[in-house]
């Protein structure tokens, strides 16, 4: 809990950001010239209950 070394390292470093979710935030970061990458994220599609149960058994 008391180890703040990694936070101090962040404070001193060039901030490099992985954005997950709203693509808009990625664009806002790029506008600032921040090094960033964007992860296209979507909720998993809802499966039919039966299919989900079958998959649970197999996997």
């Amino acid at each position: 809990m008391n180890n703040v070394g990694k936070i101090l390292e962040l404070f001193k470093s060039e901030v490099k950001i992985v954005n997950v979710g709203l693509e808009y935030f990625y664009k806002e970061l790029r506008k600032q010239g921040v090094q960033a990458v964007h992860v296209v994220w979507q909720p998993r599609p809802k499966l039919e209950k039966d299919l989900e149960e079958i998959l649970d058994k197999i996997l």
Partner: peptide
Amino acid sequence: GANLALVSV
């Protein structure tokens, strides 16, 4: 060297 993730899911 990625050091921060911005998550908005």
